[in-house]
């Protein structure tokens, strides 16, 4: 999963849906820990399109 920090609104919707709990919202950044399977769940709920599946690039 590619994270475009400039497009992030820091809402945390992506964190709520990560099935492996690999995402964390700090004050102004989403941290993606190792192990992401690029499942696209977070991309589906991001209001600003800040998360992009690797195969969609």
């Amino acid at each position: 999963m590619r994270y475009v920090v400039e497009s992030c609104g820091y809402c945390g919707a992506c964190v709520a849906v990560c099935s492996n709990k690999l995402l964390e919202l700090t004050e102004n950044e989403i941290i993606i820990r190792e192990g992401c399977k690029n499942c696209g769940r977070c991309e589906k709920v991001c209001p600003l399109g800040a998360l992009i599946s690797e195969d969609a690039q």
Partner: peptide, 18 residues
């Protein structure tokens, strides 16, 4: 908030369906 990871860490299933 919606971004909470603490419930999960406490042992409660909190993963939301997109």
């Amino acid at each position: 908030g919606v971004e909470s990871n603490l419930a999960y860490k406490s042992g409660i299933n909190s993963i939301k369906n997109p």
